[in-house]
Design a protein around this nucleic acid. Sequence first.
DNA 1: TTGAAAGCGCTACCAG
DNA 2: CTGGTAGCGCTTTCAA
Lengths: 339, 339
Amino acid sequence: MKLREFAQQLGLSPTTVSRALSGYPEVSEKTRTRVAEEAARLGYRPNINAVRLVTGRAGAIGVVMGRSGEFHFSEFMSGMAERLGTQDIDILVSPMDEKATKGEIQLYSRLAVSGRVDAVIVHSPEPNDERITLLHRLGMPFLVHGRSETDVPHAWLDIDNEGAIHRATSHLLDLGHRRIAMINGREGRTFSLHRDKGYRDALQQRGIPFDPRLVAHGNFTDELGFRFARSFLEQTPRPTAFVAGSMMTALGVYRAARSIGLEIGRDISVIAHDDVFPYLTPETMVPSLSATRSSMRAAGARTADLVLQLLAGRSASEIHELWPVELILRESTTPLRQS
Amino acid sequence: MKLREFAQQLGLSPTTVSRALSGYPEVSEKTRTRVAEEAARLGYRPNINAVRLVTGRAGAIGVVMGRSGEFHFSEFMSGMAERLGTQDIDILVSPMDEKATKGEIQLYSRLAVSGRVDAVIVHSPEPNDERITLLHRLGMPFLVHGRSETDVPHAWLDIDNEGAIHRATSHLLDLGHRRIAMINGREGRTFSLHRDKGYRDALQQRGIPFDPRLVAHGNFTDELGFRFARSFLEQTPRPTAFVAGSMMTALGVYRAARSIGLEIGRDISVIAHDDVFPYLTPETMVPSLSATRSSMRAAGARTADLVLQLLAGRSASEIHELWPVELILRESTTPLRQS
DNA sequence: TTGAAAGCGCTACCAG
DNA sequence: CTGGTAGCGCTTTCAA
């Protein structure tokens, strides 16, 4: 049914009906409720494409999906979707091109000029992120999940990666560990840098010298976790504790330790960062895994909120949220045993 | 820039320019290339919302995202996105409501009548799936990822779950195992039923009686894998082999075996189904995990293809694809040791 | 408080 | 092969 027919059936003009449905103030309360009731009864819904054409709004938020290792993605999206479900706003997923950086920036560019989205989410930024400059230049509203150091004013939501890893490392130091290995995320990403800093500062505060041979960077996969942990454990003296960047990394670390006959929670301590997945929980690992913890799903939901505010006119430079991270101690962290 | 201005600059009519850009045959080759070049040079792009209004097409495919345990989701989506990247078609993600079945069907209903999508993907159907009936009734094109047994004609793409589990079970039987436990997916889903059937038939063909105490159903999480495996292993006599429904389940099974001092690949054999994730690979598990294998990403890509065909007018009842599944043997499966 | 009418930018029909 | 033009269904001035 179209607006004209619907309005005719009500004996009203399309104008009035449109206004009633869109919540304009100049419609009488009586008319408004009547229109709302009839719309529900007759199943009238405005044609979304007509609305978009005339208002110039796309009614969607764009998310670019990386090519690999993105197990965080669905939790984040799910959180966004949960929040956006009540609004009339969609989530648009764009694939990331096979090609490297150039493809990525082109993709954002295309997305921004395509008119298909009102705002874009930028994930895992670098300190000086090209995407941020681009979107700002194109005048496309965006929210950064993570942080960058660019001068361009922008909205962001991030967790306190530095603080989290600082606490994790400090805790291991408290337990007497001195050779603490860290398997961090991809080099160059701001969150990896923040985690590096948390780690180094914690060491420095205890006067423990930083040993670059104990730090590795890479995607969050079980395979890399395993390989890095194995190579760390071949060192002499070997590390007695690990900070793992993700749950998948932790799986690899567990395996590496076991593969050479070391027992986690006795010979080796491990703390990982947990983004809270329904399908992989640190509590049920054996031994249960100590973890810094922050919900991706919650971040996704809040991101949706903030983007909505951005679109409602709130200034991007006002929107900065830094979330604290919990540290939950379980069985995988124990005092250093003197050998 | 709008079509009119652009056409004016070229000294052509909007009509011709539109046709040239949309690949209509009645435009001369010369004109077409000229239009294409100028469009690229001047950065002209048709307003997507105007196109959608006038053509009545939404330019998007809808995907409903389940609430939890959906680690397959991002790989599938990523595959879809990869394929759709070249088309002018988006992927629209809808959140699934918190409420149970009623919320879900309502969500599909809303999505179908919203005019925001041209087609919908239905995941993990049941044999008699309400969503399929609904979408058919509403006349919304859809493709089922998985299978159902409804009479409603519909397009589907599925992997040979029955064959895969049949082979996995048969292989374990070949190795001499007689008490084989199976941790399957959620009860009621067609794929779980198919897997159950593959398992039972394999047993029956060897004359091994089916023992319902060796089969469990549930979401694919490490936690359930662990709990089910633990409870199976407490039986006397205990199972000597496991068929695990997913990689996450397999993680749980590995842990359960270890937690009571059993060694995988010696005391216990395990085969899992692997949907191929970049972040969790059976090769690197210790011991490496034998698996039936089928790429979710590839399924997503192919799904996108098939939906495009559907939208191009191909009959839904012609679109049925059943993919074979590989069985890859690694270290987690060994002959039964007589004890 | 309500209504008439002018577009939003494009496609596709009908003419030439 | 090219062009004029009538809508697609809605929102939003402007006028009453």
